[in-house]
Write a protein that binds this DNA or RNA. Structure first.
Lengths: 222, 222, 222, 222
DNA sequence: TATGAATGAGTCTTCATTCAT
DNA sequence: CATGAATGAAGACTCATTCAT
């Protein structure tokens, strides 16, 4: 059993390196992380990183494929097409997104800094791997909801996805330092999830006297 | 007068270097930008950068003080204290934020990557310079609105500021590559401003049959 | 029998590695060839090369002994001593040299770059293995011919061997790239052999009116 | 005067590095010479080499252009075209070649190992810079001599240039180790020049009884 | 035999920084 | 002010070599 490197629970060096790289890239940024740091994190020499990944760029490729894209794929499994109910989808999407980030806390910083933000080092790699028409279908889904009177017509469907990412991921990307601020200490995944969903669906303006909003609120309480 | 480098109209090398540094840091990230690149952008040698800023870290300090903090100060001038009307403030804040980014397009990428995000190279420097109690006062302002029934009580006041930043700044931080996507080409500052304000205030759920919401909408059309 | 790795017809890994190493060293130079390249050429890992040769330097030793020196020994079998007929010996020597290189095309580049040329990586190893007095005997053989009036007295016996090597081996060492030049395409071993022998024996000056030269020429046509 | 780096006799660092590189490449081979060795030879750090030449490959380019090609150009100045007298040209060419190598002793090893020989690291760079038609014109010159009965018709004009290089340069490329052999100690440039010219023109076969050869010999004595 | 994993030493290259001019 | 020359420290990558299996 000890001689079986792929045995469940037994992490081989390659996998450990991938984990360390992902974590350090998320923590300090890709540009600021050296191969030697990654190696040291696992207790091997930097030559080992080259042994497994050949080059720094190949390491990035591996992270994209074996870590980030897996997350992305699982996240979008929910989305079945442009005919979906937009409100229901967004609720589920946000929930899954925030939940997923709990087991993969490296995702928010990586996604924000290295993919979304200008000059992100993974942007191109991710762009090439994301299904071209997904964004379009999502827009169509929202636009459909607007036509049917289910979705606020003053929302721009082209910007909504980015808004969701900004609302859900940015706080998580800031979380580590966040936690150092005393008054934010207690904040947890569920608080964030509730806040984001509420903001996305109903905004900050209070409207409880309104029967429609009341109905909405009741629905929301699952 | 010759000793007054910031004299109006006098575009001296130091100022140009600061501009170039800010722009390049925003574009490629601080860690990925070399002193030589900054110098080349202005047409001088990297020794000049040291002449004016002594060290790389001092250059960062100067950028924080003479660029970023100025932006931040002007942005928060609006905020007069925890007794303000939260809705009105947020509307004005978002407007000013997005407008300000038009003349200082380096702000969103810098803010997102180097300040908010984990491992940001300016985080500590900024933290030390931001008034400690500002965040608290903002939270109190929101909480006050909630008590008075003006603000949605399911919103978390501790998270709202980050939400605003995420909604307004993240799209701008992504803008340069954004623009390459054909269907997003026409998107302008005003589209973003409208979308963000609408989302923040009312969310995506459509509620036009409700007279309160109607009233709200009319108010919003300034 | 299993312990006899050089058994006839048994092309074992060790022999293949020696071949690959010799070929690659000839093609790219010893310094520019890695153990891994040699191993890959045979389809094994570089650890195998160490299994058979222990170290890079030992591999060089093996090549010298089992490849180069065998060639050298066979080449000089012709030379029976300083009393030989110099002209006849040189004719035979050149012929055998060029012929031998056809089955061992790695010899010219190796000999020129790694043995004769300054800084050659095999020079010392070869020097130690070549019979000390051979060069001297060859010189005596030539000097004898000069005394007897058979050999041009303006030739320097100390330099002649090097001249022969330069004439015969250098073109072969350059051959691979040589062949890319269109006008040299047809050039074969026999052309070279004829050219070199003719140049060595009679030089480029035409002297057909002279009866002695005529006699010489007729002799040459075998 | 001391502040004038291009003042006659005062070698600036760049020039010294070029000299050191050329010498070391000639002595040990390009592949076996490190940037640090070159720098150490001049008493600076290896970073300086990159300061002046940016990259190892650029350094090679500079050596080709500022050292080797200058030699080559001066060498071929003698050659005025295919109508030249071949015998006279070859005599002059050999003399100039061997003489030039006395002040530039790095040339023979470099030319033999890195240009002529298979896998030479400068081959491509030199090929691109040598006039395409030069070889052809030289061949025509020889062929013309053969037609006019001045040149031995059994010589192959396509191989002659390589023969000259082999005869003149190979001994020089081997010289440094050569000199360690006691019996070769006294050998000088003039011995080589005489030997090579004699061999090229008349070969090793003695033919003094022949009046034509006699006449030739007299001519040869300048 | 044969391999995969691992390493230490070394190479090229980059870059912030210094300093004399 | 401004530069060119110089450097030390560090980073990515290579490679011969070792060793347990």
């Amino acid at each position: 059993m000890s001689g079986h490197p792929s045995a469940k629970g037994e992490d081989n060096t390659r996998e450990q390196l991938l984990d360390a790289a992902t974590a350090l890239f998320a923590e300090n940024g890709i540009a600021a992380t050296t191969i030697a740091q990654i190696a040291a994190h696992v207790g091997v020499t930097s030559a080992m990183v080259h042994y497994y990944f050949k080059t720094r760029d190949h390491l990035l490729d591996s992270i994209v494929e074996e870590r980030i894209m897996r997350f992305d794929t699982r996240l979008w499994e929910l989305f079945t097409g442009s005919e979906m109910d937009p409100i229901a989808f967004i609720k589920a999407f946000v929930a899954r997104l925030i939940e997923g980030c709990e087991t993969m806390p490296w995702l928010p910083p990586l996604w924000i800094r290295e993919i979304v933000n200008e000059g992100g080092l993974l942007r191109e790699k991710i762009m090439q791997r994301i299904p071209i028409d997904r964004q379009e279908k999502f827009r169509d889904c929202i636009a459909g909801g607007q036509k049917r009177g289910e979705v606020n017509r003053d929302i721009d469907p082209r910007l909504l996805l980015m808004s969701i990412v900004g609302l859900a991921l940015l706080p998580l990307a800031a979380a580590k330092t966040w936690k150092r601020i005393p008054s934010l200490e207690g904040l947890g995944k569920d608080d964030l999830s509730r806040h984001v969903t509420e903001l996305l669906l109903n905004g900050i303006v209070f409207s409880s006297v309104d029967p429609v909003a009341d109905r909405k609120r009741q629905n929301r309480k699952k």
